[in-house]
Design a protein around this nucleic acid. Structure first.
Lengths: 345, 345
DNA sequence: CTGTTAGCGCATTCAC
DNA sequence: GTGAATGCGCTAACAG
């Protein structure tokens, strides 16, 4: 029943003009008579014409496909979902559309989806890299002059723009905050010890422990999977010490939630009997235990900034500044002084 | 520095064959000598060739762009993020890529993103419609023979496949469950009264109230925004009754969380002093209050099924069965009998 | 098995 | 202001 795809020539025929005139109308050129323009537009509407970006894109040498690729390592995590939303907002309002794919932390899958996106001619890529991503993985992109901005996690040898949170400063702030409330034994919970992010955060933690005169103990760092279960496990180990900590900063929010679970299971009320600080949280805003303090980076804002950075690079033509590293400020949202008072009582 | 885009003719030249031979290799045709194939593949790798789907797609009349559009009403909500992940899984493994866009419940934006996707030649669309979407909005798609499957919410007059949860049965099950535990006064909390989903769920609730001999009261239905704040508000109204309910089923999880907040604020412990049942939950699995019982539909599974449905329609060629309505079974995850015992004590 | 020819829908020179 | 050519990268017929 449906007619074949209606093209510029069809609408030209009906409107009684030539193809190129239609093309000019499409591009919003001022070189066309107002009456003709109106007629052409009317015909386009009547015939249900849809612009074929693929063809257009093919014709004009540089591929400005108006599509930008977004690949994240775990869309299941609200943080990255929010990030994608942030990207989408600016991408949409710039007239682009976003390809979104999830890698589930698999570099293989990541390679596949990026290849697939390239075939479709993305004009830029925002990547929240899977664990284990290397600079070499991004090499083909940069040598093809496709702008890339890496978000959340840094990719060691990559010569691309990146935007990630200031992990050291964030954790430093968390510990300093707890110290200012009087805490002296503060644990660090969760995260895989072999990741760069973990190292940065632990460094911030350790620096703050030194700087803020918190008791310097052999090991109050308990690594564990960055999950709720991991948090519960880690806190269990922490509070089994004879000289228990009175507070903990966590690798991320999932860990913090798990820590709260673990505390409750042991009859300890988080926020009252024990201070818990989370990181990277977005869940918190919606469903968190009210007692939980968090240090947070706004993922949506980060997504927006990443997208802006990318768009700037795209519009800047080919050769343009690389390696722009932008950091996000971290802020403490709530206080949790009550924990110490209880602990001391 | 970077060479111009390398095309089939380039690789043909280097490999010493003709363009069509290269094309055959690309399509994996068996009509080509094994040695030539190997050589061509090697050259492709050396020159860093990337397939141009846009051009291919342009040539072959039917647009099988290998891209499917996914538009959701609120990616910020984990439910829809999980849905997108489910879609992505099957879409990826079928060699497609997904365009994902967020509408933030705006039908205008929805129209825009769908138009944009059409311009890029999507071969199918999965839509979790914004509130207020009408059958007419999807008309252009169906008359262009673009397969569409609507998920989560139904679109009244649309002649497209859809997949959504069985709202009536779900709520019926929730109430029956609570009744079997001995509850006799069960409230319904949250949701906008003017939505179809709300009506279906309330219908299920009312039917169950009649069928399960639960006390039939004038109004234990408290509508409110389907948010955490709305839930807190609704539970506040519910427990201010002289004849308080002992349990509540909630429009969704956000409402359920809010209800828990509200209960705690009044010194009532959810799950112990009052039974709360949530719906549509995905948050629960990660961050919920342990006491909360939920009826849940697996959003990722729903996404997978939606994608499968869509792919089937795409591969089935043009004219194919429409209006396949598929429902998802709902299951009660935990028990919450303790609430009643406390209430009676 | 491989090379030749001819467009897909559009934008971009140029003439008119 | 508008209309005729030409080619983007690729596939689809056929011819060899």
């Amino acid at each position: 029943m449906t007619k074949d795809r209606v093209t510029v020539v069809d609408i030209a025929k009906v409107a009684g003009v030539s193809k190129s005139t239609v093309s000019l109308v499409l591009r919003g050129s001022p070189l066309v008579n107002e009456a003709t323009r109106a007629k052409v537009n009317a015909v386009m509407r009547d015939l249900g014409y849809v612009y074929n970006r693929g063809a257009a894109n093919l014709r004009q040498s540089g591929s400005n496909s108006k599509i930008i690729g977004v690949v994240v390592n775990d869309l299941t995590n609200s943080f990255f979902a929010e990030l994608a939303v942030g990207v989408d907002i600016v991408v949409q309002s710039a007239g682009f559309v976003q390809f979104l794919s999830n890698t589930s932390e698999s570099v293989d899958r990541q390679r596949e989806v990026i290849a697939s996106m390239r075939e479709h001619g993305i004009s830029g890529l925002i990547l929240s890299p899977a664990r284990g991503t290397e600079g070499a993985d991004l090499k083909p992109l940069v040598s093809a002059d496709i702008p890339v901005v890496v978000a959340v996690r840094n990719v060691p040898g990559a010569k691309v723009s990146s935007i990630c949170s200031d992990n050291r400063e964030g954790l430093f702030a968390a510990v300093r905050h707890l110290a200012s409330l009087g805490h002296r034994r503060i644990a660090f919970l969760g995260g895989f010890g072999d990741t760069a992010v973990f190292q940065e955060r632990v460094d911030g933690y350790r620096d703050a422990v030194s700087a803020c005169l918190v008791d310097q103990d052999d090991d109050l760092v308990f690594d564990a999977p960055p999950s709720r279960a991991g948090g519960a496990d880690a806190i269990g180990r922490a509070i089994s010490l004879v000289n228990k900590p009175t507070a903990a900063v966590c690798f991320n929010d999932a860990v913090a939630f798990g820590a709260c679970d673990g505390l409750r299971a042991n009859g300890i009320e988080p926020g009252k009997d024990f201070a818990v600080v989370g990181f990277d949280d977005v869940i918190e805003a919606k469903t968190a235990v009210p007692a939980l303090t968090t240090i947070s980076v706004d993922p949506q804002g980060m997504g927006r900034r990443a997208a802006q950075l990318l768009l700037k690079q795209i519009s800047a033509g080919k050769a343009e500044a690389e390696s722009i590293v932008s950091s996000v400020r971290l802020v403490v949202r709530e206080s949790c002084g009550a924990a110490l008072e209880r602990a001391e009582a």
